[in-house]
Every structure is written in structure tokens, then in C-alpha cells.
């Protein structure tokens, strides 16, 4: 479970203020496993306080077996991961990386693909565009960003999509009108978006209002685990107890205590780390995008990657 390989941070490129690209290669120069467009990897970042595992979408060419590329924006509210990558990461450094997993795959039977990127959400969109261009599929790309200098992957997308790349620059008051974007599209069109939360919600709502079924609308968004009050976790099966610090996620605390719960996205999206709640003397703050309302109401499940307790103690079946 959670197999990791040690790779080398072989190259660091400053793409824009606060946005860096990283190349990961094998220490022995050998080939990396294949992945599909939309995949992400989890980096184990050696922060001073311990390992911090963050998911990043692969941005490069899925057929490039020599290197994996990621692009990282420095988060203003960084919990340390993006700050470390921007300040402490050095070329030549070894870093542990998970195998690629894909929670944002393309619909292979689509007749046309509309790819939409908001800001740094452009990363999985580039790998999709590469694969679609290689397959000769019909697609277009819409890329919204804050200001001209933040359109960091515009040239790459231009090469792939040509005149079917449309850029929207907020500093020039350009925005994407989803209603216009989705109007009058042929049957079998699929739309994909990776971007900030408000944009994702607006996209899904507009599509639904226009009669698009959810099967044709795809999005990806990883949440960062929000900080909160410290709380206690009791492990029912191993009869142990540990404390989740206020700036730590429950999953991170479990890992720090030596347990190895399964995970894929670490961002509340995939459901892999779902854990059974045996008892709880406080309120669970469900921050994930995975559990249904009924599952939340039952109080029997928690996603330890992003969800936590407002103080108190939770007993889980681990």
C-alpha cells in the first residue's frame, strides 16, 4: 500500500512570481512508469517538523518516461508544503513520490472535449491536452488566470491546441461565461474543469441548469487540510491514543504515530482513506468532497485526510 519511489528533483524553473515548475527523474536515469492525462502524484516533503505529503497534478507529457513535471503555486495560507518547495527545495535533492493515480480521467467515448483551467488548475489540463492532441481528438482549451505573467503554460497549450486555446486574463477584465461556453454543444461533448472552489461550483451549477448530465461534466479540486482545535484519536484495534495537533491533519497524525492508513489524494476527493468511527464525544467537521450527507449524518465515517474534530476524542476502527 502507498508505495513510494525515491526520485531526484532534477530541475527547478521559475515560471512566474510564486509559481515554480519541478522535474522529477530517476536517480539511475531509468524510465518512469506511464500515467494517463489528469493523474496526480503525492510528494513526501521533508519539512523541519516532519514529513508533509501533498498531491500535485502531473503537468507534462504522459508519454514522457524520462521525467515527471509538476507546477506548484506558493499558497498564501501554506501549511508548509508549497512554502518548502518555493524556499528550501534544491536541484539534485532526493524526494519520495507516490505512484501516479488518476481521479480526473478523460471520457474516452466523448465526441468533443472542452478543457477549462483556472489559475494553477491548468496543470492536469495540460496533460489532458497533450493526450487529446496525440490521439487526434476534437478539443478546445479555456485558460483563465490573474494577469498576463501568470499564464505560465500558455505557450505549451498554444502548441497543443492552436487557435482552439482561449485565454481569459482577469487583470484585463476577461472572464469565462460558462453559459455561453456550454451553449449549443453537440451531444457527446464532455467538459472538464480544474480551478478554485467557486469556479468549480459555478461550472457544475451552470451545466446542470442547462440540462447537462453530471456524467459529462468533470472537475478536480484538492482541498488542503484546514487547521483547527487539537483533538485526541483512540485506535480501537491497537488500543492506542494519539493527539492531532491544531496544524496537523488526522491522517498526518496517524502516519506520525507509525500507522499506515491507505490514501490516494490526501485532499478529500478520492475516498481511499475513509475510516470507520466507533465512538465520538465531540462534533466531526466533515471537510471532504466524498461522503454523502446521509453518511455524514450517521456519524459512522470520517475522511482523516481533511476532516477533524472540534476538540474532544474520537475512537476509530484502526
Amino acid at each position: 500500500m502507498n508505495a513510494e519511489i525515491a526520485l531526484v528533483l532534477s530541475r527547478i524553473v521559475e515560471l512566474a512570481p510564486g509559481i515554480r515548475e519541478f522535474w522529477l527523474t530517476r536517480e539511475d536515469g531509468g524510465e518512469l512508469p506511464a500515467y494517463s492525462g489528469g493523474s496526480h502524484i503525492v510528494l513526501s516533503l521533508p519539512l523541519p517538523g516532519g514529513i508533509r505529503r501533498n498531491p500535485y497534478s502531473l503537468v507534462g507529457d504522459p508519454n514522457d518516461h524520462q521525467k515527471w513535471r509538476i507546477a506548484v503555486r506558493r499558497q498564501e495560507q501554506s501549511r508548509g508544503g508549497s512554502a518548502w518547495l518555493h524556499e528550501s527545495a534544491r536541484e539534485g535533492q532526493s524526494i519520495k513520490v507516490s505512484m501516479p493515480a488518476n481521479l480526473f480521467p478523460m471520457a474516452r467515448l466523448a465526441r468533443h472535449h472542452i478543457l477549462v483551467a483556472g489559475g494553477i488548475g491548468v496543470t492536469p489540463i495540460v496533460s489532458h491536452a497533450r493526450e487529446l492532441a496525440r490521439l487526434g481528438e476534437s478539443f478546445e482549451v479555456h485558460y483563465a488566470h490573474r494577469a498576463p505573467e501568470f499564464g505560465v503554460l500558455t505557450n505549451e497549450l498554444r502548441q497543443l491546441a492552436g487557435s482552439d486555446l482561449y485565454c481569459y486574463v482577469a487583470s484585463r477584465n476577461e472572464t469565462i461565461d460558462f453559459r455561453e461556453l456550454l451553449n449549443g454543444r453537440p451531444l457527446g461533448t464532455h467538459a472538464y474543469l480544474c480551478g478554485p472552489q467557486g469556479m468549480v461550483e459555478d461550472f457544475h451549477k451552470t451545466a446542470r441548469d442547462m440540462g447537462w448530465p453530471d456524467t459529462h461534466v468533470h472537475s478536480e479540486r484538492f482541498l488542503a487540510p484546514p487547521p483547527g482545535e487539537a483533538f485526541t484519536v483512540r485506535l480501537a484495534r491497537s488500543a492506542r491514543e494519539l493527539v492531532v495537533k491544531s496544524d496537523q491533519s488526522m491522517l498526518e497524525a496517524l502516519e506520525a504515530a507509525g500507522t499506515e492508513p491507505p490514501f490516494l489524494c490526501r485532499g478529500g476527493a478520492c475516498g481511499q482513506c475513509e475510516t470507520e468511527v466507533v465512538a465520538c464525544d465531540s462534533t466531526i467537521q466533515h471537510n471532504d468532497l466524498f461522503l454523502s450527507q446521509a453518511e455524514r449524518d450517521s456519524g459512522r465515517k470520517i475522511m482523516p485526510c481533511v476532516s477533524r474534530l472540534s476538540g474532544g476524542c474520537i475512537t476509530i476502527n484502526l
Partner: peptide
């Protein structure tokens, strides 16, 4: 036809599944 269309197929199974096959060829799920 455009996205937003819903298709309703009424009839014997041979007819409605041939029609469903046509819809699937045009990307309907």
C-alpha cells in the same frame, strides 16, 4: 442535437435498443 437533450424510447426491445445504440454512437450516456 445539442447537450441538454433527453431521449425517451418507447416500444419493443428490438426497436428501443437499436435506437439506444444510435444515441450511444453520438456520445449519449
Amino acid at each position: 442535437a445539442h447537450m441538454g437533450l433527453r431521449l425517451y424510447l418507447v416500444g419493443p426491445e428490438d426497436a428501443i435498443w437499436q435506437a439506444a445504440g444510435i444515441a450511444a454512437r453520438y456520445g449519449m450516456l
